[in-house]
Structure formats: structure tokens, C-alpha cells
Design a protein around this nucleic acid. Structure first.
Length: 772
RNA sequence: GGGCUGUUAGUUCAGCUGGUUUAGAAUGCUGCCUCGACAAGGCAGAGGUCGGCGGUUCGAGCCCGCCACAGCCCACCA
């Protein structure tokens, strides 16, 4: 046996064992006769660097995988990365800007070339970082959502859903950035509270000077708006149907000032009676809510603003002038016409583009949608009937609510990085059918209706989630070669570990795809982790700079210590406030484990009979072990991972180190019986196995140091302990002794061993029970 | 604004089907201890009106109602 170093060196073990496991195929899985345990990793963004959220998420996954592996299952944990179209494209654009290259000066092909170069260079960083954490992924199966096969699957699915009539084109409001001349996602819009002026503008009621009352006076309705420039695009005035002030006006028509257009006065519950005058002008082309009302009440759309934020021809006035200049001009003009009742200063929220800081202009655009009503039905049913279990189950209510009110999924994005939509348009079509999009997996070459070869592909790419929703199927090539060996063996996978924020974006959609394409759930258990927060409850994020670098933590406390640290505070589904102190506790635990092993190595077993105390002590611990193993097994099956860890921690620290080893030390002080030595080693091995899913490195290291072992005899594949029958009387009997025995701030060693050494007579309540 | 969840030692959390004695654990704190695995350690101790108010019950941390506060998701009020 090698000399056991006094201090455990985590770094040395981490390097040594990770390499060993990789090179000897302990992580790799191929279908065989054993029971499968499969799990797909939520693919981190290629732009990502390891943060505490990844540490939490992947540690839990690794614990589950290692536990399953030790249960003798054929485990396959598939890693990979997500192309993350928005985040990556933004990153590449920023990088090009630094080089003095503007995206708009590049062709699509040129831009994508840069993007791929970026991906090849930086896209693998997070994968390497996950290895330092000890993740036992099947790295040979690493996938990327834009790999050729996976992209093909995405296109195939799009075409299939289109043919089934589930995909359609429709109009939708997008956040338009008039400076960047691009649509931006909701996440890229910052809402800021600003000082605005609220203009009260009166609109004339049509034909009121001929009112039946006989009085030749005009009647007016006053609306309130912060955006007078959009008056030119008004197509209705709306009031609340319960508003007594306006009941008589509903059904009449109002005249839009300046353009003198007659528009209906309609009623809808949407209007807040208390705000402004309780009358709302409706501009369906330039406000999302107005748009929805427009759809509901069948109102015409007048698009009065150009993409660059200037007034369009449709506006009729101030054509080509900027919307904010026009705002003031129109306000002034209305004032002169005597149609401004008053102006109020208010604070309201205005959306700004994250990239250019321009005020976002809601703009109508053609987008692709996936119908969700029918396709999502099985995904709701099978969560409700328990085929798929959410852990913790409190998320079922939220899930249900969302799935019952699911709206169609807008799957197109105005970006270049991603799978380009497989739709072509005939540019110079002569027949009416030529105006339809041609949806096929490959370029059709010509218009099938008129034969024109002048066709062009849709510019947009698909939403990133439209590729990741296929992840559990596509990583096993379930679309490329349906029914292949891998997909039949590994699908449905067992567990999915992810954050509740993406329960709908991702989890729900994977379930939908699973039922749609394989008729089966993609996974059986969804373990939802909490959000990692700092001590004052803020979400840990890069932008706040309040997150420790996991790599620093690993360097300081070891991968094992870091893993324990993050798990000590992480019940499923609850947020966790992370404190570096926990990693220190984790490191201390590995230290304790190491030292207990060092103690055992100092014992020299002899061929003598153990005394009664040693025997009793040994059988007590055996029982304690079985009792706790049963509890651990129960906690694993209910996914109470941090409970498992705490039980294991106390079993090692309190029961094994503080009790068992201390007593053995005393009862075997005059010679160490072989039987007790063998028992102790056996107990240590059981404990190491229990600890291994949490602390893979130190356990493998100690395991290896216990004795000479075969290459296959590694703790990573050792059989996970199962409980034997527990003799409760024995457990409680010894606990009673313990309670009566320890007192006055002296431990067993101090109470028994030292007095003996000093040839003093021991005084204890039950000296004989310890065989002294 | 709509939906959901939570509130238990200083801190982070358990507490499962209402009934284990005095509501647990870890950590932190305080005191004592260099002893032969470990001071990254050992032993002991202090710490709680279970967010507030009311109700149901023989009995409530747990069930019901209201209130307060916090968080999450969705929508983004002219």
C-alpha cells in the first residue's frame, strides 16, 4: 500500500480519475441487455460560460446518473450545446463591430461564416468546464442543435407540421427597432419609466350639429393619448361598455382631426374607465393592445410609420419626418385648431431597444406560427395523469394553467444564425397560387405553379426552441433513422433536470414533440431546480457581478467540495441562497472522510478475538448503516437529493467518525482484532459508495487506496448499497448508552482513554457495557 | 393587471396522513479542550409566540378565511 498523504489533494485526484474514467469508457454507453437510464442535458448556450446555475443543475444530474450507474443500470447522459440564435448572433455582431464590420454590410453567407468561426473557437468552452465539475456525461455523444443531422430534423419537422396544416403565416406585432432597422425580441426590450405628456384631444362626433335635440351645437368625445402622432392612423374610438358617460355614443361615429376620417365608436371591457377620460383612440397598426382590439372588432389597419421611424405616405401628413418631431408638430397644430382640451404630465413606461437605445415601435409583420391547441393536448393530459411527474408537483397547477391557455407559437425570428425557414416565394409569379409559400425540405429550384426559376427563400430563421424541443429525440437520431437501436433503447429517457423558468418554453414543448413524433413521453420525471441567489436574495447573474466563478470555487474547495456546497442548500424547486461557506463545509467533509481513512490505515490487525464491546459496537454500526441506507433509498426515490446528502453526511461524520471509530479506538486499544478491522473496512466501503454520487473524486481515490484493485473494480461502477433487515433494539440500546455516557464537555477519548493512560480509575455510569 | 408559490432558530432549510415526549438538522454564535485520524478538529451550551389576526377541532407549524410581506411566470394600460 502506498503511503497515505497527510493532506488530501483534490486537484491531483480530479485530474487522475476524470482521465481514467474517460479513457476506460466508464462514461460511454451503448445499448445492451441491461436496464437503461438515459438523460439529456439541457444544452447550455454556446455563448455560455459556467455559472452557478449550471453547477447546480449539472451536479444534480450527475448525482442521479452516478446513482443509477451504481445500481447497475446502463446509463447514458447526453451532453451538448444550444445554438441560441439571439444570444449568439448578438455576440457575433458585437465582435464584428469591434473589428469595424457592420452586419448590414455583410451578405448572409459572409455573416454565417464569421458565426461558425466564432462557434468553433468559443462554443466548446462550457463543455470543458463541465468536465472539471466531474460530470459523467457520454462525451462521445456530444451534440449541437445546429449539427447537420439536428438541423435536418428541424427542417423535416417544420415541413411535416406544415403539411399537417399546423403551421401558418400570420400577422403579428413585433418590437421594431427603428435605428437598428430590425425586429428585436421581448428580452431585448428594456422598459423605462419616463416623463411623458398626456394630451387630451377632442374628436368631433359625426353629424352632431344636426342632432335631434334641434340645437345646432357640435358634440365631442375627448380621448387621452401620449402619442398624438399616431392619431393619423386611428381607426376607432373605444369606451368601456359600462361607462355611463359614453353609453349614448356607442355606435355613433367620430371624426379624426386633421385627416377628417370617420371612425366607429366601439365598446370593449378592455378600456379602463378611470384612466384619462375613459375614452381610448385605437391605432391597430401601432399598438399591440389596439391591434388585438382591431382584430376583435374587425377594424382596418393604417400603417403610418416607416421602418426608420418617419411618417409614411399612409399618414398623409408630415411624410418623411421623424415620429418625435411630428408628435410636437401635431400637438401644436391640434392646439391651434382648438382640439386640445388639456395636457397632463405623467410617468409611463416606454420600451427601449437594448442594442441601440431607440424607442421601440410596435410594428406589424408577417410571421410563421405553429397551432398549439390540438398538438398540445396530450402534453397536458399526460402531466395531469401522472405519466410525466413534475418534481416538486406544485408546478402542475402552473403548467396546467399555461397549457389550458396556450397560444399559437410564433416560430420565426428575424435573424440569420439558426435554421433558415424552408419556405420559398415565387418572385414573379403569374398565377394566383404563386403567391403561396412553397414549403419543402430542399430548394425546389422553380415555382411548381408557373415554373419560374426566380424564387427566393424566406429570410427568417426558426426560433431556437424549435430545435431544442426535439432534443430528446434528435440526439438519438430519432428523426434521421426512426426506430434505430439508440432511440428504441434510450427513449423515453428517465429524468430531466432543468429550471422552472423554461418549463413552458422548453419542457412543455419537448413533451408536445415527444407525443407528436414518437407517441410517447420524452422523460418520466422532471426535476425542477431553484434559482441560485446571493445572500441578499438577488438572482446570481453575470451582469450584476454577484456570482462567484465556479472555477475559482473548484480550485479552492475542490470539485467535490463545490458539489456538496451547492447541494447542501438546494431542495427541489425552491430558490437557494448560495454562500461560499457551504463549499467550505463541503471541503471540510472531504477532509473528514480522508482523515477517517488515515486513522484506519494506522491500525495493524492481529489474529485475536474481539472483545464484547467491539463486537457490540460493530453490530450497532451495521444496524445504523442499514437503517440509514433505507432512508437514503426512500429519499432518492422521491428525489430529495439534499436530504440524501445530509443523511449521508451525518452518517459519516457523527455515526461513523464520532461514534463508531472513537469507540473502536478504545475497545481495541490493546490489539486490533482482524474481524473488527475487516468490518471497519467493509463499513468504510459502504460509506464511500453512499458518498460517491456527491463526491466522485475523493471516494474513488480512497477506494483505490484501500487495496490493490482490478481495473474494472472502481467505485464509479460499484454496487450501490441496499439495506438489510434492521434490528432496532440494537440501535436504540446503544443510543441510550451514548446519551448517558457523554458528559461534561469530554468526549469518549478524553473520558476513557486519557484516564487509563494516566492510570486513573474510570468512573462511568455503565462501565461494563463498554467491556472495560 | 392576471396566474402561481412561499413566510418555521442569526442564516439556509426539514417537518410526509392534524396527535413522539420540551418543534428538528446543518451552519453560525458562545464556552471549554492541542488528546495518539482530523483545529478544515473534539465536547458542551445558548438561540423559535412556527409572518399577523380570526375560525374548524378534544388537539393546529400542518386544515379554512382575511390581512401583511417576499418571490416567480405571463401581460406590458393609452
Amino acid at each position: 500500500m502506498e503511503e497515505i498523504s497527510k493532506i488530501y489533494d483534490p486537484k491531483k485526484s480530479e485530474e487522475k480519475w476524470y482521465k481514467y474514467w474517460m479513457e476506460n469508457g466508464f462514461f460511454h454507453s451503448e445499448p445492451d441487455g441491461r436496464e437503461a437510464y438515459a438523460m439529456v442535458m439541457p444544452p447550455p448556450n454556446v455563448t455560455g460560460v459556467l455559472h452557478m446555475g449550471h453547477v447546480l443543475n449539472n451536479t444534480i444530474q450527475d448525482v442521479l446518473v452516478r446513482h443509477a450507474r451504481m445500481q447497475g443500470k446502463n446509463t447514458c447522459w447526453v451532453p451538448g450545446t444550444d445554438h441560441a440564435s439571439i444570444a449568439t448572433e448578438a455576440k457575433v455582431v458585437a465582435l464584428l463591430k469591434e473589428k469595424g464590420i457592420a452586419k448590414k454590410d455583410l451578405s448572409r453567407e459572409e455573416f454565417l461564416k464569421y458565426a461558425w468561426e466564432w462557434k468553433e473557437k468559443y462554443g466548446g468552452i462550457i463543455i470543458e468546464q463541465l468536465k472539471t465539475l466531474g460530470c459523467s456525461c457520454d462525451w462521445e455523444r456530444t451534440r449541437f442543435t445546429m449539427d447537420e443531422d439536428l438541423s435536418k430534423a428541424v427542417i423535416q419537422v417544420f415541413v411535416d407540421l406544415y403539411k399537417k396544416g399546423n403551421i401558418y403565416r400570420g400577422v403579428r406585432m413585433v418590437n421594431w427597432d427603428p435605428k437598428g432597422l430590425t425586429a428585436v425580441s421581448d428580452e431585448e426590450v428594456n422598459y423605462k419609466e419616463v416623463d411623458s405628456r398626456l394630451f387630451y384631444v377632442k374628436y368631433k362626433i359625426e353629424n352632431t350639429h344636426e342632432a335631434s335635440s334641434g340645437q345646432a351645437t357640435d358634440e365631442w368625445i375627448t380621448i387621452a393619448t401620449t402619442r398624438p402622432e399616431t392619431i393619423l392612423g386611428d381607426t376607432a374610438v373605444c369606451v368601456n361598455p359600462n361607462d355611463d358617460r359614453y353609453k349614448s355614443l356607442v355606435g355613433k361615429r367620430a371624426i379624426i382631426p386633421m385627416v377628417n376620417r370617420s371612425v366607429p365608436i366601439i365598446a370593449d371591457e378592455y378600456v379602463t374607465m378611470e384612466f384619462g377620460t375613459g375614452a381610448l383612440k385605437i391605432t391597430p397598426a401601432h399598438d399591440i393592445n389596439d391591434y388585438n382590439l382591431g382584430v376583435k372588432h374587425n377594424l382596418p389597419l393604417i400603417d403610418t410609420i416607416n421602418p426608420d421611424g418617419t411618417m409614411s405616405k399612409e399618414a398623409g401628413f408630415y411624410i418623411g419626418e421623424d415620429r418625435f418631431i411630428v408628435r410636437n408638430k401635431i400637438a401644436k397644430e391640434l392646439e391651434e385648431m382648438g382640439q386640445i382640451v388639456k395636457v397632463e404630465n405623467i410617468k409611463n413606461k416606454v420600451g427601449y431597444s437594448e442594442r441601440t437605445d431607440a424607442v421601440i415601435e410596435p410594428k406589424l409583420s408577417m410571421q410563421w406560427f405553429l397551432k398549439m391547441d390540438k398538438i398540445s393536448k396530450p402534453a397536458l393530459d399526460h402531466v395531469l395523469d401522472g405519466t410525466i411527474k413534475l418534481i416538486p408537483d406544485k408546478y402542475i397547477t402552473t403548467y396546467r394553467h399555461w397549457m389550458e391557455n396556450v397560444h399559437d407559437w410564433c416560430i420565426s425570428r428575424q435573424l440569420w444564425w439558426g435554421q433558415q425557414i424552408p419556405a420559398w416565394y415565387c418572385v414573379d409569379g403569374t398565377k394566383p397560387e404563386c403567391r403561396e409559400a412553397i414549403v419543402t425540405e430542399t430548394n425546389p429550384g422553380k415555382c411548381p405553379h408557373c415554373g419560374s426559376i426566380n424564387i427566393r427563400q424566406d429570410e427568417d430563421v426558426l426560433d431556437t426552441w424549435f430545435s431544442s424541443w426535439l432534443w430528446p429525440i434528435s440526439v438519438f437520431d430519432g428523426f434521421k433513422t426512426p426506430g434505430n437501436k439508440d432511440i428504441s433503447y434510450y427513449y423515453p429517457t428517465n429524468d430531466l433536470v432543468t429550471a422552472p423558468e423554461i418549463l413552458f418554453f422548453w419542457v412543455a414543448r419537448m413533451i408536445i414533440a415527444g407525443y407528436e413524433y414518437l407517441g410517447k413521453e420524452p422523460f418520466r420525471y422532471v426535476y425542477l431546480t431553484g434559482t441560485v441567489r446571493d445572500k441578499i436574495g438577488r438572482k446570481m447573474s453575470k451582469s450584476l457581478g454577484n456570482s462567484p466563478d465556479p472555477l475559482d470555487l473548484i480550485a479552492q474547495y475542490g470539485a467535490d467540495g463545490t458539489r456538496v456546497g451547492i447541494l447542501l442548500c438546494s431542495p427541489a424547486g425552491n430558490d437557494l441562497t448560495f454562500d461560499e461557506l457551504l463549499c467550505e463545509q463541503g471541503r471540510n467533509f472531504s477532509n473528514k472522510l480522508w482523515n477517517s481513512f488515515r486513522l484506519i490505515t494506522t491500525w495493524k490487525p492481529e489474529d485475536i478475538e474481539p472483545n464484547e464491546d467491539a463486537l457490540k459496537n460493530s453490530s450497532w454500526f451495521k444496524n445504523k448503516l442499514d437503517e440509514q441506507i433505507a432512508s437514503i433509498e426512500k429519499d432518492y426515490s422521491s428525489y430529495r437529493i439534499s436530504e440524501v446528502l445530509m443523511t449521508t453526511y451525518k452518517l459519516v461524520w457523527d455515526d461513523f467518525c464520532s461514534e463508531y471509530l472513537e469507540r473502536i479506538k478504545i475497545s481495541c486499544r490493546n490489539g486490533f482484532p482482524q474481524k473488527i478491522y475487516d468490518d471497519t473496512i467493509q463499513y468504510l466501503e459502504i460509506l464511500l459508495k453512499l458518498v460517491h454520487p456527491f463526491m466522485p473524486f475523493i471516494t474513488e481515490e480512497i477506494w483505490d487506496n484501500i487495496k490493490q484493485r482490478e481495473d474494472k473494480d472502481r467505485i464509479i461502477v460499484a454496487k450501490f448499497p441496499t439495506p438489510a433487515e434492521v434490528d432496532n433494539s440494537l440501535v436504540t440500546h446503544f443510543e441510550d448508552i451514548r446519551k448517558s455516557f457523554v458528559r461534561n464537555g469530554r468526549n469518549l477519548h478524553q473520558q476513557i482513554y486519557l484516564p487509563l493512560k494516566q492510570k486513573l480509575i474510570l468512573i462511568s455510569p455503565e462501565p461494563n457495557s463498554l467491556g472495560l
